[in-house]
Simulated scan of single mutants.
Amino acid sequence: MSAQSKDELLAEAVRLREEGHPEQARERLLALTATFPDAVDVAYQTAWVHDVLGLEAEAVPYYERCLQGGGLCEEDRRGALLGLGSTYRVLGRFGQAVETLRLGVAEFPDDGALRTFLSMALFNTGEHHEAMRILLNLVAATSDSPHVQRYRPAIEYYATDLTRIM
């Protein structure tokens, strides 16, 4: 099978997933994974389809595989870090979730989704103050609500320490 054939088959599997046929996409992706075990793009899409199907435990090794080496484009790496971190959290592997999502935030500091999922994982590890700090700063920076923006300085001030009183 040529690289072009792999790319065409991968595109077809992604299309199936996007059009609401994740089981068919999974079958094709598992076949592609067997043929191209080192292809990080195939591993990423295979992880994603397992997540879509609620098969989080089965998604983990594919996420881990696609992140081990280089080769993922920036957008797929971002998605893989978020997907793996979120999947670890759903599976109760909170420490690994925090570690993975911190890596994602370090690589993609402007990604609000990564910061949101990191805050959820931090909550699960009992790091409530850091979780709230991240979320409050995210709300202050990204909300287009004029009501939030009116209080942005106060929100950012209290994000540093919610226990602070005047």
Rank of each mutant, 00 (worst) to 15 (best):
M1S: 13
S5H: 11
D7R: 05
L9P: 00
E12S: 13
V14L: 06
R17T: 14
G20I: 09
H21G: 13
E23R: 07
A25W: 10
R26Y: 13
R26E: 15
A31M: 05
A31I: 02
T33V: 06
T33M: 08
T35E: 15
P37E: 11
D41G: 15
V42H: 09
A43Q: 07
W48S: 09
V49D: 07
D51C: 13
D51F: 01
A57M: 12
A59C: 11
Y62N: 04
Y63N: 00
C73P: 15
C73H: 14
E75N: 14
L84W: 01
L84T: 03
T87I: 09
R89N: 00
G95K: 13
G95E: 13
L101I: 06
L103G: 05
V105W: 00
A106C: 12
D111R: 08
G112C: 05
G112V: 07
L118I: 02
S119G: 02
S119H: 03
M120I: 15
A121C: 06
A131P: 12
I134F: 00
L135I: 04
N137L: 11
L138F: 04
A141Q: 13
S143F: 10
P146M: 07
V148L: 02
V148I: 10
P153D: 06
P153C: 01
A154P: 05
A154M: 13
A154T: 12
Y157E: 11
D161H: 12
L162A: 09
L162K: 02
M166I: 14
